[in-house]
């Protein structure tokens, strides 16, 4: 077992983990945070996407021990005091989800994308979400949601 200290959704944690424990299982089972889903388990679908030190990563392909000393954010960590994050709110408003399985990963990929590129074009949103699969929506409303979120974020900052 290896002791890891890290921050998850703003909370400092210290846990004994097996080195082979994947970050997604650490989040779901040790921390009880169920937003990040395991879809493909092969780095393809993006359902397990979380932010690691501010950058989107697929947590099915990161070891919990690799996250030691870093800052992890899941979809649960985005909303403060019951207020949805602008990206979450935009997904809801624009019908950016149906079954919702891909959504926590889509939202985190979108948050990561907007952090790197606050004013993306539609093309850049499509390319920026290429690591996330959705089997329901056909993507159009997801793209709309991310573009709308970029606009709201710009308004909030203005």
């Amino acid at each position: 077992m290896t002791r890891i200290e890290l921050t998850v959704n703003g909370d400092k944690r210290s846990d004994e983990v097996e080195p082979r424990l994947l970050l997604v299982h650490y989040l779901r089972e040790t921390c009880g945070l169920r937003a990040a889903n395991v879809g493909c388990d092969t780095t393809s679908c993006g359902a397990c996407t979380v932010l690691l030190d501010g950058r989107s990563v697929k947590s099915c392909t990161v070891l919990a021990v690799q996250a030691a000393g870093q800052d992890v954010v899941t979809s649960e960590g985005l909303s403060a005091d019951g207020e949805l994050h602008p990206v979450q709110a935009a997904f809801r408003l624009n019908h950016g989800l149906q079954c919702g399985f891909c959504t926590p990963g889509m939202v985190m990929a979108a948050v990561g994308l907007l952090a790197e590129n606050p004013h993306p074009t539609e093309e850049e949103v499509r390319a920026g979400l290429e690591g996330n699969l959705c089997r329901c929506t056909g993507y159009h409303n997801i793209i709309r949601a991310v573009l709308a979120a970029a606009d709201t974020q710009a308004e909030v900052q203005a």
């Binding site: 780095t43 993006g46 996407t49 690691l52 950058r55 989107s56 990563v57 697929k58 392909t61 990161v62 990929a109 990561g112 994308l113 920026g128 290429e130 690591g131 996330n132």
Partner: peptide
């Protein structure tokens, strides 16, 4: 290479 998440790692 791959997608944004893969390029971050």
């Amino acid at each position: 290479v791959g997608d944004p998440q893969i390029r971050h790692r």
